Computed example of a mutant assay.
Amino acid sequence: MAVQTFLVRTMSDTVETDIQRVFTIANEILPRYHLPALSFEQMRKIADGPFDLFLIPHIWAEEHAQDRSLAFNEAKRAEIRSAALEIARKHGYDVNPPEFIAGIESSLKETKQAGLRNVLMTTGGRRYKHQAMEKAGIGGYFEEIIDRDQTYYAKEQGLYHLYRKHKLPHMRIVLLSGTASYLKAANNAHGCKVGDTYLEVVPIALSTEYSYNDEATLRAARPKALIHGYGELLPILKELAPLG
């Protein structure tokens, strides 16, 4: 019996302006804490979503060195999120849906035709994500969206949510992302067993100009493979996770 395979894509690898928005917002937050702006290259070494997960350790570096759980401090998270929302509103980011990366629609069609079940994972909320997808006409290619409610504390939770929801004897998730923390989460979730069910997770790094992290940072997260474009995905899956 063929293993049902879900292809989880992340928002930052679906919309082309996402990384630029992060860059702008982060560099407008940092001066408030008397810190210099990050270069684009510097940011791609540490970028993550949501903002607080990489800005808290950067802003409160000494405190974070003593307490690695600081990024989950609710008061600090609320402080960073409030500032990010204020800046996003100023730039119109919260009302103007971003453009989708060229080639995403054809990739979604190809993977769906190949038997993969497309899922979108984001650390953001649903409101603008749904509107953007409907406007672009690609919403129908995603079976579901896993959002902030499932990924707020750990990206592994989003993968476990999908696993628990479908209750398949053997579930395979191919996670395609240009963000290192997602790839690490995939490795952490791989091999989970609940009763007679088993979760297989195959992390594949997508290194493009839109990726949150640079190629070296992505490789350090230990993906099963690294690709540089959507066209490389199905051929690499034939080797790593045959669909037949």
Results as ranks from 00 to 15, higher is better:
Val3Asn: 15
Leu7Trp: 08
Thr10Asp: 15
Thr10Tyr: 05
Ser12Cys: 14
Ser12Leu: 00
Thr24Tyr: 09
Asn27Val: 14
Ile29Gly: 15
Ile29Trp: 10
Pro31Ile: 02
Arg32Val: 12
Arg32Leu: 08
Pro36Val: 11
Ala37Cys: 12
Glu41Asp: 14
Met43Glu: 15
Met43Phe: 11
Met43Gln: 15
Gly49Ser: 15
Pro50Glu: 14
Phe54Gln: 10
Leu55Gln: 06
Leu55Cys: 12
Pro57Asn: 10
His58Arg: 03
Ala61Leu: 04
His64Gln: 04
Ala65His: 12
Gln66Cys: 07
Ser69Asn: 09
Leu70Val: 13
Asn73Asp: 12
Ala75Ser: 05
Ile80Glu: 00
Arg81Thr: 09
Ala83Trp: 12
Ala84Lys: 04
Leu85Thr: 02
Glu86Gln: 10
Glu86Ser: 13
Arg89Thr: 13
Val95Gln: 08
Asn96Leu: 05
Pro97Tyr: 00
Pro97Phe: 03
Pro97Asn: 02
Glu99Gly: 04
Glu99Thr: 11
Ile101Thr: 08
Ala102Cys: 06
Gly103Ala: 04
Ile104Asn: 03
Glu105Pro: 03
Ser106Gln: 06
Ser106Cys: 00
Ser107Gln: 05
Ser107Trp: 11
Lys109Thr: 07
Glu110Gln: 08
Thr111Trp: 01
Gln113His: 06
Ala114Lys: 07
Ala114Trp: 03
Gly115Lys: 03
Leu116Ile: 04
Arg117Ile: 13
Val119Phe: 11
Leu120Pro: 05
Gly124Gln: 09
Gly125Ala: 05
Arg126Trp: 02
Arg126Met: 04
Lys129Trp: 01
His130Phe: 05
His130Asn: 14
Ala132Cys: 10
Glu134Ala: 01
Glu134Val: 01
Ala136Gln: 04
Ile138Glu: 02
Ile138Val: 13
Gly139Asn: 01
Gly140Met: 01
Ile145Gly: 03
Ile145His: 08
Ile145Asn: 00
Ile146Val: 10
Arg148Leu: 11
Asp149Ile: 11
Tyr152Thr: 05
Ala154Asn: 15
Lys155Phe: 11
Gly158Met: 04
Gly158Ala: 04
Tyr160Ala: 03
Leu162His: 15
Met171Asn: 08
Ala180Met: 12
Ser181Gly: 01
Lys184Glu: 11
Lys193Asn: 14
Thr197Ser: 08
Pro203Gly: 10
Ile204Asn: 07
Ser207Leu: 00
Tyr210Ile: 00
Tyr210Arg: 12
Tyr210Asp: 01
Tyr212Arg: 08
Ala220Val: 02
Ala221Tyr: 13
Lys224Asp: 13
Leu226Gly: 01
Ile227Pro: 00
His228Gly: 06
His228Asn: 14
Gly229Ala: 12
Tyr230Asn: 04
Gly231Ala: 12
Pro235Gln: 14
Ile236Pro: 02
Leu237Ile: 11
Leu237His: 14
Leu240Ala: 10
Pro242Leu: 05
Gly244Val: 07
Gly244Phe: 07
